Every structure is written in C-alpha cells, then in structure tokens.
Simulated assay, not measured.
Amino acid sequence: MKKSRLTLLATTALIAALTAGCGSNDATNNATDSKDKATTQEEKVVQDQLGRDVKIPTKVDRIVTGGILPFYSTWYVATDSTKEIVGMHPNSYSAAKNSILAKISPDVLKADTSFVKNGEVNVEELMKIDPQIYFEGTADEKTIKKVETTGIPVMGIKAIDAVKNTEPMGTFNSWLKVISDITGTTERTDRFLDEGKQVQNELNEKLSKVKESEKPRAMVLFNHSKDSIVVAGNNFFGNQWLNATGAKDVAQKDIVGTKEVNMEQIYKWNPDVIYITDFTATQPEDLLKNKIAGQDWSQVKAVQEGKVYKTPVGIYRWFPPNGDAPLMLKWMAQKNYPDLFTYDMKTEIKNYYKDFYSYDVSDDEAEKILHPSSDSALQ
C-alpha cells in the first residue's frame, strides 16, 4: 500500500516539475487557434497541449480519460453530459463515485475501468471499449505512445499550466478550451470563465487592502499517513489557491511540486493554517486530536488554534482543476479571512449548482461537499 502511494506521489511531483519549464502558454494558444481545422466531413484536426495535430471524428460520443484524473469532470462541465465517457482511470472512478456528480449525471458511473491493470494501461482492454479519443497527461509519454500504436487518437493534456502559476483556474480553463475545440461548443465554457474572473476580481478588491504582514501563513498537506508527510509547494495547485486567496505558502521557497518532509520541518514552518487535500484520507480531527502515532501535531500553531481544514469534494475534488473552482476560491478566502469574507458557503453552493448545473443541492448534500468523507480520497 505504501509503495503504491509513494509511486503516485512521485508521479504527481514529476508532473509538476516537468511542466514547470514547458511552454504551456504556447500549447494553450495553439489549442485555441486550431479550432475546427476541417479535413473531411467525418473528421477534423485539433491540437492537443503537446502542440500536436490530432485527427479526430467530427462527432465525438465515446471518450476515455486516463491518468489525467480530473479530466472526466471537465468534460461534464464543458458539455453538460457524461454519457460520452465510456472509460476512465479507476482513481477517477473512485472520485466520481464519491462525488455529487454521480447524482447529477449518473451516466458517469457507467464508465469502464478495466483497461487499467496494476497502474498500467492494457491496450487490449482499451480497444474493447472502442474510444474515439483517449485523453492522457502530457507527462506520461510511455502511455501516450502505447495507446497511439492502437490507432486510437490520443490528446495530451497538461497537468499544470506553468505560465499561469498564480492563476488557479488557468489549467482548468485551458482544458475547457480543448474540449470546446473538439465539440465546437463554447457556451458553458464561456460561462465558467466569466464566473471565475468575477469571483477572483471580487477577492482581489478586498485583498488589496490587506497588509503583507497580516496575511496568514498556510501549509497544504497533500498526502499523509503515520508513515509519510507529503507537503505541496511552489508550482503546484495548492500554491496557486493560496496565492489567489491572500495566504502565504510556507513551503513555497522549499518545495517544488510535492515533497515528503518530517515533523521537524513542520515545526520550523509552524503554519497558521493547514489545508488537507482530498487526495488523502486524513481528516482535520486526526491532527486536532493528535491521533497519528509518532507525530505530535499539538505543537503546531494551526492545530493549537483549530485552523485545520479539509478541502471539499463537489463535482470533483476541489484541490486540483475542477468545475467548482469559483466556490473553492470563496471557501479558501473565507478560511483565510473569516472576518473579511462572510460567505454562507452552503448558500453559495446551492446557488452555484442551481445556476450552473441546474441541480438543487439539499442541505445534507451541501454538508457532504464541505466535509467529505475519507472515502473520496480512495485511490
């Protein structure tokens, strides 16, 4: 179990490191500029985020998403549908099963996961699913090449938009544009982009009055167990969210991507606030009640003051790129500055889901979004 978890973490860190130096802005612009390059009535060419021209069917109704775990939810946000998702990575399926998306668009649970065996793509099983497009993270060159040998069109998708590393929605926005290129639809994409800009501007206006010395010092606990403490740092999603919501990332100068650290390092940072991601089963009470054997969290300021929070899970996990990003901005801003941002997050969730997803969220569902169970982190 520990070995597989560490492998996942190493892969995640590698993705962050690899994309840090890549020209993601060029890839995003190319994807936008390549809209609807017609080849025949049945096919067209779009550019992926590796800058490659990929020939795909004009009408796409069967897709598979691989190791780029949040991408299935991006498809839903862009298209208002999950029936086209005929296959997804088992880790994505676990997130979908434990998210509200399973209620909003239950077709998502019909996706096949059998094409991933022991963390590797089995091309024979993948071909049985018969996808028209396979989506994979650009860092996983091995899988991209393997799938391409089958003749299935592969779209490379970047995990981190390095050029916009202070903009937490930059990556997700670029994904939406890729899907718009594929489907030819932009209405929902445009609405999401407008909402995200509006919320960020709202935060910026209030945060502009906050002195640098008054900003909370925050830490993102990316993955955690009694055997391992992995913290997220610079050029990763946690750093983006913290910057956007007016907090200082204590790990920004010491960590690029994610890194395993010890308690001595935590004591040295001594953060005011700790955010626990939805990629780990650890809950705030595990730290607040000092339940982890061999780790004394009681000495950390955030724990002493009760400022330890679990990132929510809605359409997808809120820590990486996701369709609830405007809500994530409000939620984290309020945790950082409870007196400055007085959102009623249950109401915010209900209004957003009604407006954007045409779904009426119950009080119980809103509570589960804001306080997800550890099951949502299962890999």
Rank of each mutant, 00 (worst) to 15 (best):
Val261Met: 13
Thr282His: 01
Pro271Phe: 11
Pro284Arg: 09
Thr277Asp: 02
Ser298Ala: 14
Gln265Ile: 13
Ile292Ser: 12
Tyr275Glu: 05
Ser298Met: 13
Phe279Ser: 12
Glu285Arg: 14
Lys268Ser: 14
Tyr267Val: 10
Asn290Ser: 08
Gln299His: 14
Lys259Trp: 10
Leu287Glu: 03
Asn290Leu: 07
Lys259Tyr: 03
Ile276Asp: 05
Ala302Lys: 00
Trp297Asn: 04
Asn270Lys: 01
Thr282Leu: 15
Asn270Gly: 00
Leu288His: 05
Pro271Asp: 05
Val261Glu: 03
Gln283Phe: 01
Gln295Ser: 13
Leu288Ala: 04
Lys291Trp: 03
Lys259Pro: 04
Glu260Ala: 15
Val261Lys: 07
Val261Ala: 05
Asn270Leu: 01
Lys259His: 11
Thr280Leu: 10
Asn262Glu: 12
Val261Cys: 05
Tyr267His: 04
Pro271Asn: 06
Val273Phe: 11
Glu285Met: 11
Val261Ser: 05
Gln265Leu: 10
Asp278Asn: 15
Ile274Val: 15
Ile276Leu: 14
Ile266Lys: 07
Ala293His: 05
Lys268Cys: 01
Gln299Arg: 14
Ile276Lys: 09
Asp272Ala: 10
Asp286Pro: 01
Leu288Gly: 02
Asp278Trp: 02
Val300His: 01
Val273Asp: 05
Gly294Asn: 09
Tyr275Ile: 11
Lys291Thr: 08
Val303Cys: 06
Met263His: 06
Thr282Glu: 09
Gln299Phe: 12
Tyr275Trp: 04
Tyr267Met: 10
Thr277Ser: 15
Asp296Met: 11
Val300Lys: 08
Asp286Asn: 14
Lys259Gly: 00
Val261Leu: 10
Gly294Tyr: 01
Ile276His: 05
Asn262Ser: 15
Thr280Tyr: 12
Asn262Leu: 07
Glu264Asp: 15
Tyr275Leu: 14
Thr280Ile: 09
Asn270Gln: 00
Gly294Val: 07
Thr282Pro: 02
Asn262Met: 08
Ala293Gln: 13
Phe279Ala: 10
Thr280Asp: 03
Asp296Leu: 12
Asn262Ala: 09
Trp297Gln: 03
Asp278Pro: 00
Ala281Asn: 09
Gln283Met: 15
Asn270Ser: 00
Thr280Ala: 08
Lys259Glu: 13
Lys291Gly: 02
Tyr267Pro: 00
Tyr267Thr: 07
Lys289Arg: 13
Tyr275Gln: 05
Thr280Gln: 05
Ala293Thr: 14
Ala281His: 12
Lys289His: 10
Asp278Gln: 13
Ile276Asn: 07
